[in-house]
């Protein structure tokens, strides 16, 4: 643990170098929130409550979705794939570090960077400019744990896609497909409540909703009973453990095919 924390700190500092970029990301997010506001306002012109959500709840859901999306978007799949393809991975293999834990902590550092630079300003914007109100309830206390589990799931998926670099030249297709499936079926773009009922039943058991829908619901409707939240978290925990272990096994297999040119 002691040797991994400086890695997180390091990647946090690297993030600071790109301060100029954060400005654009925040502007992009403000525009996105504005567009989402108008889109959902027009949808809610038909009725005050759609699929059990009010306009305020849906807008909070979508806004949080974008904030958490940026938080969890660490580009781990691209970096790991790049390091494998270019042979940079050799630098890590010669050190007494675990490759998966190394990447986990490096991503934790970028996550904290995104949290301070982008997510917090977005949430402040939601509360003060768009005047979104958050109710009080047990969900608020479960949220941090749920977010951490969501990070583990998201990381394990990205990490496994990155490991495909052992087998394939380019990761564009895989990464893009993964990103679309995750964003559409996770609630990052549109509340899962809006999907047809049969689809919702299937989506509930998939890991994607555990990344966005579960933590978002804890802030959107925090005043629900614990027996609503606990099964959702159980699904999260099960996926976090399964995917983390699966990624580990995959690495142990994949590392065997690695050949790095000398020189």
């Amino acid at each position: 643990m002691r040797s991994y924390l400086p890695i997180a700190r390091g990647s946090y500092m690297v993030g600071l170098v790109y301060r100029f970029g954060f400005l654009f990301t925040i502007v992009g997010n403000v525009v996105y929130l504005g567009v989402a506001y108008y889109l959902w306002r027009s949808i809610y012109s038909y009725s005050d409550t759609i699929r059990g959500l009010t306009f305020n709840e849906t807008f909070l859901y979508v806004g949080l979705g974008s904030a958490i999306f940026i938080l969890l978007k660490t580009y781990a799949d691209w970096y790991i794939h790049y390091e494998i393809r270019e042979g940079i991975i050799a630098n890590y293999l010669t050190k007494p570090l675990d490759f998966q834990l190394y990447n986990l902590f490096a991503n934790l550092g970028s996550l904290l960077m995104n949290l301070t630079a982008i997510t917090v300003p977005t949430v402040l914007l939601l509360t003060f400019v768009f005047k979104v109100k958050v109710a009080f309830g047990p969900g608020l206390f479960l949220f941090p744990i749920s977010l951490l589990l969501a990070f583990l799931i998201s990381f394990s998926i990205d990490y496994s896609i990155g490991l495909m670099g052992f087998y394939s030249e380019s990761v564009w297709g895989l990464s893009t497909t993964k990103e679309i499936i995750v964003t559409v079926f996770s609630g990052a773009l549109i509340p899962l409540q809006f999907f047809p009922a049969a689809m919702q039943k299937v989506l509930f058991w998939l890991p994607f909703q555990a990344i966005y829908h579960t933590p978002i619901m804890m802030l959107t409707k925090p005043d629900q009973a614990l027996n609503v939240f606990l099964p959702m978290m159980a699904v999260q925990l099960a996926w976090a453990v399964t995917l983390f272990v699966a990624a580990r096994l995959f690495y142990n297999q994949a590392i065997k095919v690695l050949r790095i040119a000398g020189g």
Binding site: I43, I50, S175, F195
Partner: peptide
């Protein structure tokens, strides 16, 4: 292989927003 996988990725990513419209129009006319 890369071309095929990338084309599949392109196919899904270019239809994502349309999917969102479809989901929305399931709930409102």
């Amino acid at each position: 292989a890369d071309f095929i996988i990338s084309s599949i990725g392109m196919f899904f990513s270019s239809l994502a927003t349309l999917g969102v419209f479809w989901v929305i129009l399931n709930s409102v006319p």
